[in-house]
Structures are given as structure tokens and as C-alpha cells.
């Protein structure tokens, strides 16, 4: 094990995969000498000559070229500087990458990773702060990953690169500097496995990405008040580890889902629907969602704090179930 930041762990994940497979390459805006807008690819340009490519500011070409390169045998890992820019290249992802294999009768494979940071709390306002993971989970053919710790970031990156499908690998800006113990060398976490980050018996809190840490902080506080919360980190949204969620609810009989995205049509609603459909008898109380408000992300820090979910809102949601 080695102590590294979440950003370093993502980089280490890419580095190890680039060492073991010559067909893996990186492309994106300022990912080369500059090392990426958030420094995630720093040093790889020199370490892997010809395999870390700066592109023009041209998201359609970045994702679109990755589709063609992947269909032609490579394993591109492309960076979209902020997830908010995905609207610029959405056709390339959702009509091309996601559908090729099915439309072509199973004869094509599109092993590509789109790395992109999401999330708020940085006063980056409405076009640089969003959590739009539900856009991607709504499209069959794409897998969606949202790691919350350095170790998960590395292991899930390896799995994403080795996967033969288009994968949205969604980082969180608030987590990039977070440190943690990370296994050295090859380390792969299978996609579709949730992780219980804290065991508990009175209530299940499902969360992912930055909100996982808010859920853990809330669970600490709740423990002091005599409520034992189990915190489930989804890690991958598609494929989803339904079993882990249902087993936890079977134990606690109560569920709170925390999602940094806006409320309407968000992935928290999907979790709630699944548990109602497949685990209604397990529930002793209604399911509660803790989400952002249905508004564009405001610039002012005080307004943004109102917009975002936080520990206080999670604690209040949990208490409302007892």
C-alpha cells in the first residue's frame, strides 16, 4: 500500500494499464505537457511518448474520434475537462458509442473510457459544477463509474480501461486532493460491486462520489445520538449492485439515498424505485431522498450551500424515519 491522493490514484491506474497494454492511450484538452486542467495526467506525457495527446478544444472530435479508434482496435482514455461539457459531444457518446454493438448485431466493440470531473462546492457556478450522471445511466450500452476514494479510483480505472464497452468514469473535483492508502501495481475492482463503507443496523444510507463522505460524516454524528447507520457506496451506477442495497435494507429496514444531482429524474429516484419494487416488504418507513435543489448551480457560496446536500440535511432525513 502507498499513500496517494485520489488524483494520483487515477493517474496510477492509467499508468499501470498503459504499461501492460500498448493500445491504451490518452487524449484530451491540455492533458499533455500541461498535465490536465486538474493535473491528473501530470508526467504521463514524458513517461509514454506519443501516447498522451493534446487535442484542440473540440469535445465532439475528442469523444467522436475515440469511438472510431476503439472500434478499430485501440483503448482510448479521453478527458473531458468538466462533465458540464458533455453536452457538446453527447451524440458521439449516446447515439454512436453506446449503440454500435447492439445496432451492429454484436459484431463491434467500443472499449473507450471518458474521464471527466463533476460536482459543486467550488463556487464554479452553473456550467462547471453539475452532477449529470443520470444522463449516462439512462442510456443502455454505457457503463457509469463514480469512485469516492483513492483506492477505488485506481481499481475502478483499471477495470474501466479493461472493459470492452464505453465507460463514463466520473471523478469529483472535491475529491482530487483527498489522500488514502492505495494498493501498488496492478489493482482491479470489478465493476458492479458496491462497497459497505460503514456497517450499521438502524438505517441504510446509499451514496456515491463526494456525497459518500457527507454520508459518513452524518453517520458519525448519528452514532453519537444512538442511531447506527450503514453507509453503502455504490461505486458503479451501471452496472448496479442491487443485491448489496437490498441486503442492507433487509438488515436496517430504512433507506435514505443521497445524491448531489438535482432531484427530478435523478439516480436517487432510480434506487428508490428499485427498492420499492423489489423490497417493499423490507421497509418500515418511507424512502427519503436527499438531493440538490431543482435549480441551476448558483455562483454565490451561500446560495450554493443551500443548493447542495450536506450532513445536516442527511441527519434530518434519517431522523425523520424514526
Amino acid at each position: 500500500m502507498k499513500k496517494m491522493t485520489y488524483a494520483e490514484a487515477i493517474r496510477d491506474g492509467m499508468r499501470v494499464e498503459m504499461q501492460r497494454d500498448a493500445n491504451v492511450y490518452i487524449a484530451g484538452e491540455d492533458v499533455g505537457k500541461f498535465g490536465g486542467c486538474f493535473g491528473v495526467t501530470a508526467g504521463l506525457f514524458d513517461e509514454f511518448p506519443g501516447r498522451v495527446l493534446d487535442t484542440p478544444i473540440s469535445e465532439t472530435a475528442i469523444v467522436g474520434h475515440a469511438v472510431g479508434a476503439a472500434a478499430a482496435g485501440l483503448r482510448p482514455v479521453v478527458e473531458i475537462m468538466f462533465i458540464d461539457f458533455m453536452g457538446v459531444c453527447m451524440d458521439e457518446l449516446f447515439n454512436q458509442a453506446a449503440k454500435m454493438r447492439y445496432m451492429f448485431g454484436g459484431k463491434a466493440k467500443v472499449p473507450m473510457v471518458v474521464r471527466t470531473p463533476c460536482g459543486g462546492g467550488m463556487t464554479a457556478s452553473a456550467q462547471h459544477s453539475q452532477c449529470i450522471e443520470a444522463w449516462f445511466t439512462h442510456i443502455p450500452g454505457i457503463k457509469t463509474i463514480m469512485p469516492s476514494t483513492p483506492a477505488d479510483a485506481k481499481g475502478l480505472m483499471a477495470a474501466a480501461i479493461r472493459d470492452d464497452n464505453p465507460v463514463m468514469y466520473i471523478e469529483h473535483k472535491q475529491l482530487l486532493a483527498m489522500s488514502g492508502e492505495v494498493p501498488e501495481g496492478e489493482y482491479v475492482i470489478p465493476l458492479g460491486k458496491a462497497d459497505i463503507k460503514r456497517a450499521g443496523s438502524d438505517v441504510t444510507i446509499v451514496a456515491w462520489s463526494w456525497m459518500l463522505h457527507k454520508a459518513l460524516a452524518a453517520a458519525d454524528q448519528l452514532a453519537k445520538e444512538g442511531i447506527s447507520a450503514e453507509v453503502v457506496d455504490l461505486r458503479t451506477l451501471v452496472p448496479l449492485d442491487k443485491e448489496c442495497i437490498l441486503q442492507s435494507v433487509a438488515k436496517t429496514n430504512r433507506l435514505v439515498v443521497v445524491n448531489e444531482a438535482v432531484r427530478t429524474s435523478g439516480f436517487a429516484g432510480e434506487i428508490a424505485a428499485i427498492v420499492v419494487e423489489e423490497g417493499f416488504d423490507l421497509l418500515d418507513a418511507p424512502i427519503v431522498r436527499v438531493t440538490a435543489l431543482d435549480i441551476p448551480v448558483p455562483f454565490n457560496a451561500k446560495l450554493e450551500a443551500v443548493y447542495l446536500p450536506n450532513e445536516t440535511k442527511i441527519i434530518a432525513a434519517v431522523k425523520s424515519l424514526f
Binding site: 469523444v63 467522436g64 474520434h65 475515440a66 472510431g68 479508434a69 472500434a71 478499430a72
Partner: peptide
Amino acid sequence: QPIAVGAAFA
């Protein structure tokens, strides 16, 4: 168009 560019890159 971008898909052809990607195949050409490969």
C-alpha cells in the same frame, strides 16, 4: 466524420 478520424488515428 469524427469516427472516421478515430479509425484513421488507430
